[in-house]
Simulated scan of single mutants.
Amino acid sequence: MTRKMPTLTRRAFAGGLAAGLATPALATGEAQIEPDISNTVRRNVSSFRTYDWKPFFSSLDNGAILVDTTSRALHYWSEDESVYKLYPTSVPLSEDLTRLGRTRVVRKVEGPDWRPTPSMKERNPEWPDYVPPGPDNPLGTHALYLSWTYYRIHGTHDTRKIGRKSSNGCIGLYNEHIAQLFSLSTVGTQVLLI
Rank of each mutant, 00 (worst) to 15 (best):
K54F: 07
K54I: 11
K54Y: 11
P55H: 12
P55R: 07
F56M: 01
F56I: 01
F56C: 01
S58C: 01
S58N: 13
S58K: 12
S58Y: 06
S59V: 02
L60G: 03
N62M: 09
N62D: 15
N62V: 02
N62I: 03
N62F: 12
G63R: 12
G63P: 10
A64E: 03
A64L: 00
I65D: 00
I65Y: 00
L66H: 02
L66W: 00
V67R: 01
V67E: 05
V67T: 04
D68W: 01
T69V: 15
T69L: 15
T70C: 06
T70F: 14
T70N: 14
S71K: 09
S71Q: 15
S71I: 11
R72M: 12
R72G: 08
R72V: 04
R72A: 09
R72P: 05
R72E: 08
R72N: 05
A73I: 11
A73C: 14
L74I: 07
L74Y: 07
L74T: 05
H75A: 08
H75F: 04
Y76C: 05
Y76K: 02
Y76Q: 09
Y76E: 07
Y76I: 05
Y76G: 04
W77Q: 10
W77K: 09
W77P: 10
S78R: 05
S78V: 08
S78H: 09
E79Y: 06
E79S: 13
E79T: 12
D80N: 14
D80K: 04
D80R: 03
D80C: 07
D80P: 09
E81Y: 08
S82A: 15
S82H: 12
S82P: 02
